[in-house]
Design a protein around this nucleic acid. Sequence first.
DNA 1: TTGAATTCGGACAATTTTATCCTATTAATA
DNA 2: TATTAATAGGATAAAATTGTCCGAATTCAA
Lengths: 144, 144
Amino acid sequence: MFSKACEYGIKATIYIAHQSLESNRVSLKGIAEEINSPEAFTAKILQQLVKNNIIDSVKGAMGGFQIDKDEISKIKLSQIVYAIDGNKVYTGCGLGLHTCNDKKPCPVHDNFISIRNDLKKMLETTSLLTMTKGLDVGLTYLKR
Amino acid sequence: MFSKACEYGIKATIYIAHQSLESNRVSLKGIAEEINSPEAFTAKILQQLVKNNIIDSVKGAMGGFQIDKDEISKIKLSQIVYAIDGNKVYTGCGLGLHTCNDKKPCPVHDNFISIRNDLKKMLETTSLLTMTKGLDVGLTYLKR
DNA sequence: TTGAATTCGGACAATTTTATCCTATTAATA
DNA sequence: TATTAATAGGATAAAATTGTCCGAATTCAA
Ligand code: FES
Ligand code: FES
């Protein structure tokens, strides 16, 4: 569904948000451990998220990554996905035609549109805050 | 969503089915032209579909690919996807945890399950015959 | 029976994605 | 101010996916 980079990005953002809610700034090293991702690769992805204003970074000793508490309920899953995978989730054709196109649809267009719209809605309504719920109480996991 | 290989596989199967309905056996060359895919790569994918008993091949001069007319309404999109991409659509976790797992769900599990079940249902109920409809009358396209 | 048309299958090549390494830059603090 | 801990970013490497090439096997037809 998503690229590996995007998966790491989502998990990292959830972890950062979770810690930010407790006013903890977190390091790349800590993130990579908590989400079980390769450190250097994760660094690249975090850079993208910083550039897209989804997370904040602070350089230097005691530096790390964080998100404004106020933002955590405002940021939507769709923003993270867009920052890393672009809009192909929205514009791509299920059968790989150059773009999805109502006027010249592929044979699975109608079926796909329906599911993709549901996916879109889900991505756009799921907030970062929502995704952090459950982590505390061990209801959900970022690694296994 | 699907790999390129899978996209080519689906399109190829639809085209073969469409021609088989008119009792035409089709060649690799013809298929690759009609679905706008690289010929040699498409050959590999067709081999997989043959091995999975989704399409039939006939070697030699006048050979090619075809599907029993009776089968066309019975073959489901899910079979094609499974033959090429395996069951990752069904068992994969949205955030890339080793497998999706109800007992130790990732933070987006509930949201994903719902969409994935819809996708699953769609794949399992969409028949090859259904996907060929519309090709005739120029309502749907395999290339653009 | 030979030649042509075709799929099959193995080896290989190109591209994209994923991952690593190393240096530069920045900031805290001793 | 020097040291240390951190992110930023460029270059490179490894792995996976996508794509190509070529010869073998098969079948039809002349
Ligand atoms: S044209 Fe293929 S999904 Fe819309
Ligand atoms: S555990 Fe991640 S989707 Fe089910």
